[in-house]
Design a protein around this nucleic acid. Sequence first.
DNA 1: TATAAAAGATGACGTAAGGTCACTTTCAAC
DNA 2: GTTGAAAGTGACCTTACGTCATCTTTTATA
Lengths: 245, 245
Amino acid sequence: MFHINEFKKLSGVSVRTLRYYDKIGLLKPVSKTEGGHRVYSNTELKKLQQIQFLKTIGFTLNEILTMLESEEWDWSNSLLKQLTYVAGEKDRLSKIESSVRELINGIAIEGEEFRIKKIMDLYNRDSKEIIHFNLNELDIKNTEVLEKLPNMASSDPDSLEWIALVGQLKKYMHLGYSHSRIQNIIERMDVKKGEDFKDEDAFLDKLWDIRMSAEESKNYSLYPIDQDVLTFMEEAYLYYLDHQS
Amino acid sequence: MFHINEFKKLSGVSVRTLRYYDKIGLLKPVSKTEGGHRVYSNTELKKLQQIQFLKTIGFTLNEILTMLESEEWDWSNSLLKQLTYVAGEKDRLSKIESSVRELINGIAIEGEEFRIKKIMDLYNRDSKEIIHFNLNELDIKNTEVLEKLPNMASSDPDSLEWIALVGQLKKYMHLGYSHSRIQNIIERMDVKKGEDFKDEDAFLDKLWDIRMSAEESKNYSLYPIDQDVLTFMEEAYLYYLDHQS
DNA sequence: TATAAAAGATGACGTAAGGTCACTTTCAAC
DNA sequence: GTTGAAAGTGACCTTACGTCATCTTTTATA
């Protein structure tokens, strides 16, 4: 049993935060003294560490609250959502990073005059690729795509394998679409497509369809796939069809 | 000259935001009508676009305010700072992404309940860094297994596929080891084993070894594989070897 | 046991960047 | 001049706490 300052030292979380978590019902002390001082135990310490972890991967306190409250929480689903979010943010930051690098280089080379003009140029480009893209994504995510891909957030191993396959494709892209490793991946995708999923709503069919129409991929919000990966996939697939035994 | 609603349509920025920018002195309208309605011009449109750009690369409105106010601003310096910040954030998100992936993988293989709290418990306040689940942080006592599986906690797509394959095996176990679906999975495992990894330390070889000695798998604690899955895998593999071609 | 000091509790206000009412005033068309 | 649309202002709300200010409880010492 610890009082609040000991608990703070054990957990590394500020007293204010502990009181706040108590207030919002996220982490209540195991009991209180007669005078109203909070008393914590090891149980609360563990729970607090879980909270800290979920916070670092980007969940809000409210989300964490409902997660830890409900006994039957769909962890896979929310973790996949979170993965989507995190991967998307990472992607966004990558683009920003290159913009800023470009700007710095431009200023270094061309000097002061470069400033306004180039900022504008960069902004216009970014506004098309980043901002506008995000707005569309948000709008569409809630309506069409979710209906189109009902099972896409499942923790089904098949879905996971699909994710793995796309990941491999990306990893080995530099080998070129005719490379045997790439062709093996494509073959597995093709086999898997025909073999594992015969129902219409299946994850793979939907994603396969999306591959066909590159435009749609922009709205594909569960697992962001870069445009170049999709293009590459298309090329590799065509090559695969041509050279099939 | 535009009134506020036209300006909103031109810029894509909400009316509330425009009024807010006016209030904090970031973007004032060129003039006001006698009745107090805001009037904007093309100059403000350009400035607003600059603001939007600076916002997307992560500057606060306050920073932008001082930037645009002072005539001689050290752009290189602040952009470099921003680059550092953005790159750092990207790095942070990368680590989070791997953590989440690993968590998902663990759940995919093992099922929801058991693993998640245990993994989350790994979060230590001591490590100010985001946890990167490498094996050292895990509570593993058998060091032999540790040495055998150097890369198994990585989010390498190859690892992901392996994980997915084991997951599928578990999922379709009930079909029996001679079922075509199972045999397909086994075949992919076998092909993958020989094909993708030729170096000794590779993930798959090591795990394949572990399949051989079922006892060791008990110490295999990052992605523990159930005993029955291992046994089943062995049976299916023997069947596969017998009936090959 | 009395008392002082330390520790804890509670409440209020502030943060960034606006969103969302509610209510009032001005503009533009007829 | 009337009227409906558009614009104005002000207040409260959001996250996850930090930072006082004031009051009460606990604890250590005389």
